[in-house]
Simulated assay, not measured.
Amino acid sequence: MKKQIREKLALGILLLLGLTACGGEEGSNGAIVNPPVTGPVPEMSIDACFTMITSLGEVGLGIDSRHTPQSAANFIGYVDDGFYDGTLIHRVIHNFIIQGGGFTSGMVPKPGKAPIKNEASVGFSNLRGTLAMARARQSDSATSQFFINTLDNPQLDYSASSEGYAVFGRVLSGMEVVDQIGIVATTRVGDYSDVPLEEIVIERIAPSECPMLEE
């Protein structure tokens, strides 16, 4: 059990391209000191919905344009451009996350647009089934890549010592597909680890009608 906890904490330190959070002000001991989230954490608002069609099935996604406007507009822009069509779910870490939106077949990087501001300080938690922006070490470095949490990962949240990873939506349907992807065999391809042994293709992400959600 202790080994599993240590492994999960270690994974939380390197989510995407070397996902070690940085930024904020440094305290006297060199640690990051971020301002606390002021006021209560808002309830996620599902303002726009999408269907992510993968080679293993469909996943319904809902995003929050009200509280995470930059992350939402960024994602919608990539969808409208057809950017995600033919990209891969290129990273799968069992009992942690699945990640996609930045590579095409053969693990060829697909350059994205300018990076956006990290909106993790809104306070949404990286709970199972939430959709979040992947980024590099710098806080405001997210471009096209996103991930879905397959377990609760509060170690990825904004805090006094971490800039966190911005949650901007959640899975509305097809979590069983996410779970199926989350247990596939992985390998190393060049410099990239945790790559699915058999390519999982995002065939398309398309706008869809939002379901009636319970209040």
Rank of each mutant, 00 (worst) to 15 (best):
S121A: 11
A134Q: 08
F75K: 09
K3W: 10
E119Q: 04
I98F: 09
R91D: 08
G129C: 01
E25T: 13
S162Y: 07
P211E: 10
E215G: 12
V41N: 02
I183F: 06
G182K: 07
F147L: 06
E163D: 09
L88K: 13
I32G: 01
D191C: 00
G169Y: 04
G23K: 03
Q70G: 00
S173G: 04
E214L: 11
R66M: 01
P40E: 15
F124A: 06
D152T: 11
R188M: 10
P40G: 13
F103T: 12
S141Y: 04
A72S: 15
T38Q: 14
V122L: 03
I46G: 04
F124V: 06
L16T: 13
I13C: 05
E203G: 08
F96Y: 15
I97P: 02
G57M: 09
V33I: 15
V37E: 09
G23F: 06
E25G: 09
M133R: 15
G86Q: 08
I148F: 07
F168R: 02
A132I: 11
Q99M: 10
T87R: 12
A114Y: 08
S121R: 14
M107I: 12
E199C: 08
Q145L: 04
I63L: 05
I93T: 10
G24C: 08
Q145V: 04
D64S: 08
P42R: 05
I98Y: 10
L151R: 15
Q138F: 11
G12N: 08
L127D: 14
E203R: 11
K8F: 05
K117H: 06
C22P: 03
G100H: 11
M175G: 07
A160I: 09
L127A: 12
D81T: 07
V59Y: 05
N34H: 15
A31L: 13
P111M: 03
K110T: 05
I181T: 02
K8Q: 15
S139M: 08
E7R: 15
E7P: 01
A134P: 09
V59D: 01
E119A: 02
H67L: 01
I76H: 00
